[in-house]
């Protein structure tokens, strides 16, 4: 599903964030990317969702080479990917429901379909009772759940999560991680970047450990 073939990334300031990275992620797999700060975890995710283009190498996602993707094709390509960040990136002047609605309307989905999809995902994540709350009325864990709901509501085949538990306490983190496990069990491919090097073992999932832009394990 995702294949990195000798990918290198050098940023404009000549900093090499990735150095000859190769790995594959199968459809339905759950992959952790671990490593110290500045290792290049976020860079890998950014290359997958075409925010950054690799300087060298091939990146194949769903049989498409993302390394040479055209600007115009990016929007359609991203509809198949759900992205979750450490800082949630919610809209604070809109309710939970409206946050999800915004995303579906922005990708031009029809009205009746929108409501149904939102209700289904809110029920699944146990957020129904919070649907009319504003994000500031929610705990950090709940806000991250809303962000996950927003990523899932458009039924992506791939979920990318960058440090999703970085801003929430341990208790809530466990719940969030369990949600990702469930998402993965339903067949969605998950790639998660994290500092917590014990998480892969705990969940018995494959991990890719990188240090200074190089894969050292996995």
């Amino acid at each position: 599903m995702i294949e990195f073939d000798n990918v290198s990334k050098t940023y404009q300031n000549k900093w090499t964030a990735l150095n000859n990275v190769s790995f594959t992620v199968e459809r339905g797999e759950f992959l952790f990317i671990t490593g110290p700060t500045g290792a290049g975890k976020t860079t890998i995710l950014k290359i997958i969702y075409a925010e950054e283009l690799p300087t060298a190498g091939k990146v194949i996602v769903n049989n498409k080479n993302i390394a040479t993707i055209k600007k115009k094709e990016i929007s359609l390509y991203r509809r198949n990917i759900g992205i979750i960040f450490q800082d949630f990136k919610l809209l604070y002047d809109r309710t939970v429901y409206e946050n999800l609605e915004f995303v579906l309307k922005a990708i031009n989905m029809k009205g009746n379909e929108i409501r149904e999809k939102i209700m289904r995902i809110l029920t699944r994540l146990g957020l129904m009772h919070k649907k009319d709350c504003y994000p500031y009325q929610l705990s950090g864990g709940e806000q991250q759940k809303v962000a996950i709901a927003r990523a899932l509501v458009k039924d992506p085949e791939i979920i990318l999560a960058d440090e999703p538990t970085g801003n929430i306490d341990e208790e809530a983190s466990k719940e969030i991680i369990n949600i990702f496990k469930e998402i993965n069990l339903m067949g969605t491919t998950v790639v998660m970047a994290t500092h917590h090097s014990e998480l892969p073992q705990l969940l018995k999932k494959r991990r890719l450990h990188i240090v200074q832009g190089k894969i050292v394990d996995g």
Binding site: S75, L76, K89, L91, V103, A106
Partner: peptide, 17 residues
């Protein structure tokens, strides 16, 4: 900014943005 960022991330077309 936030709206624009989210729209770009979820794959809204330039036209919609």
């Amino acid at each position: 900014q936030r709206e624009i960022e989210i729209m770009q991330l979820v794959g809204a077309t330039d036209y919609f943005i």
